[in-house]
Design a protein around this nucleic acid. Structure first.
Ligand code: SF4
Ligand code: SF4
Lengths: 135, 135
DNA sequence: TAAAAATGGACTAAAATAGTCGTATATAAA
DNA sequence: TTTATATACGACTATTTTAGTCCATTTTTA
């Protein structure tokens, strides 16, 4: 119920690999997917999203691949999650903004406001933890 | 990706109702499901689980229903989650114990160990927060 | 130009969540 | 002792989310 998605797990594994093994050198998606036996297509998409978010640099063509765009200390877990899940925050409830969205009891719900406190504790944690802590 | 399930949300809403509106008096599942327009059957199961876990008392028969089994300060979010999800902890990754379970890259995964740090921060938070904080 | 790599959209499969249905059991009150 | 009301519980279905696949395109280097 509170699991990280595979996208995030694979993303973290990849970032770790690029940071540690790559260490400045270009690393390809294939290299990582082979190493960890992760679906190439899936991992490729994860890397594309990380590149789009400016977390890693991407290089086309024959000797192409990826490098980190900044030092591991500066890559926060929150931005990895944002890049891969596309949500503005890691929301404990689906109704965080103010639209009823999908929840049928939105206007009668009594817990969404107090739950924001827990939300901010989680947000703070994720924005403080950098991927250098998983190296 | 980190959402509480509806089970938990409904559980918290119900606990809040029993604590505040009930205030010692017996409250029925129907009363709560009517009030918030939550599926009766779904809510009933949630309440049954909370009762089984000793968080609320249940009373059969005509004037039956539920009351809190302890004071709101003593009902921790962690035990509500445990009661409703049946997992021993709120796990950020599916592989926390040591079995390969469902993950195909278990033995090659490099992040599960460092992720435990984040896990314990989350665990601590949930075992400190009581439902009195959502009243 | 050929090979190697990233990009990106559409699609399918699998798993988790949410919700429903039917029936049994217990209890209070009439 | 019957009836109405309430919890208990297992099996089932539907919906949504997540995971994974496929395929065609673009870019670059050798
Ligand atoms: S139940 Fe409440 S907290 Fe949960 S999604 Fe609905 S409005 Fe939000
Ligand atoms: S990818 Fe790693 S952390 Fe995630 S479930 Fe598999 S072994 Fe666990």
């Amino acid at each position: 119920m509170l699991n990280f998605s595979k996208k995030i797990e694979y993303g973290l594994i990849a970032l770790r690999y690029i940071a540690l093994i790559g260490d400045g050198n270009i690393v390809t998606a294939k290299e990582i997917s082979d190493k960890y036996k992760i679906s190439y297509e899936l991992l490729a998409k994860v890397l594309q999203k990380l590149a789009k978010a400016g977390i890693i640099n991407s290089f086309y063509g024959v000797n192409g691949g990826y490098t980190l765009a900044k030092s591991p200390e500066k890559i926060k877990l929150s931005e990895v999650i944002l890049a891969l899940e596309g949500k503005s925050n890691i929301s404990i409830v689906t109704c965080n903004s103010d639209q009823p969205e999908s929840c049928t009891i939105f206007d009668r719900c009594t817990i969404k406001t107090p739950l924001n406190k827990i939300q901010s504790v989680i947000n703070n944690m994720f924005s403080e933890i950098s991927i250098s802590e998983i190296l």
